[in-house]
């Protein structure tokens, strides 16, 4: 499954350090992600998973090292970060839908304003995507009228509306009521089946096992182990990972 032999990685993370004041959030982290790969990042809270994910589209600035997307350095001020971000869909734990816009407007806003897509075309695209995530009947509702699971599915569709090359998921199911986790994971599994490259910070073991090509285990800002879901869940090497799995499973 892993296309590790295909020439260039989409995401190249090399020796990244990041500090919050004195506290190191990322310590010499390196990771490559290739076209079509599904990467799941696991680890205890405060291990730097989200920080790593957020540095990929520069929502966090790193202190040293290199992060590049398609060979473009995201931290180089000469490169237009807004252009790079248009290619990286992001889904947040708290959904962050725009509450003053309808569901449809949430989806059409970025393609219309940033890609210059005609409104009609953007709306057709939006409806197609809403259909895909199973909430086309809510197109004209405001986010506050939707359940958490529905909001998160809209948020995924909103990110997809920019037709990104890669999707970043930052604990997409952690803020959801348990009965709504499934509907969001289903959407993500389908997305993975369609061949979308994705990096996902999540605690959902089932999802990691069915979908992931690579599972990354982080602790205290370091990547301690990288491997296939089987390697990680069946034959964990690092004692910290063994301990972590014992607590979660």
């Amino acid at each position: 499954m892993t296309n590790a032999n295909s020439a260039e990685p989409i995401i190249r993370i090399e020796h990244v350090w990041k500090f919050f004041g004195e506290l190191p959030a990322l310590q010499d982290v390196s990771l490559h992600v290739y076209q079509g790969q599904r990467v799941v990042i696991i680890g205890p809270s405060g291990s730097g998973k989200s920080t790593l994910l957020r540095s990929i589209n520069r929502l966090e600035e790193i202190n040293s090292g290199l992060i590049s997307v398609d060979g473009i350095d995201v931290n180089d001020p000469k490169n237009d970060i807004n252009k790079i971000r248009q290619n990286l869909g992001m889904v947040f734990q708290q959904f962050n839908l725009f509450p003053h816009k309808t569901v449809l407007q949430n989806l059409t806003m970025a393609p219309c304003r940033l890609r210059g897509m005609p409104r009609k075309e953007a709306e057709e695209l939006a409806l197609r995507l809403l259909n895909k995530v199973g909430i086309s009947d809510k197109a004209h509702a405001y986010p506050a009228m939707l359940s958490g699971g529905q909001q998160q599915r809209v948020a995924i569709a909103r990110a997809l509306a920019m037709q990104p090359e890669l999707m970043l998921f930052d604990e997409p199911t952690s803020a959801l009521d348990p009965e709504m986790v499934g509907e969001v994971l289903d959407v993500m599994v389908n997305l993975a089946r369609d061949g979308m490259t994705m990096i996902c910070v999540t605690h959902e073991m089932g999802f990691a096992r069915t979908v992931a090509d690579v599972v990354v285990f982080m602790d205290k800002g370091q990547i301690l182990e990288v491997g296939s879901p089987e390697d990680i869940y069946e034959h964990p090497q690092h004692p910290r990972l063994q301990q972590f799995l014992k607590q979660v499973l």
Partner: peptide, 18 residues
């Protein structure tokens, strides 16, 4: 206005002014 709103907008590719 929650910070997540700004982050969501920036992550879509909108600049600061937009």
């Amino acid at each position: 206005v929650p910070k997540g709103q700004t982050e969501a907008s920036r992550s879509l590719g909108f600049n600061k002014v937009q």
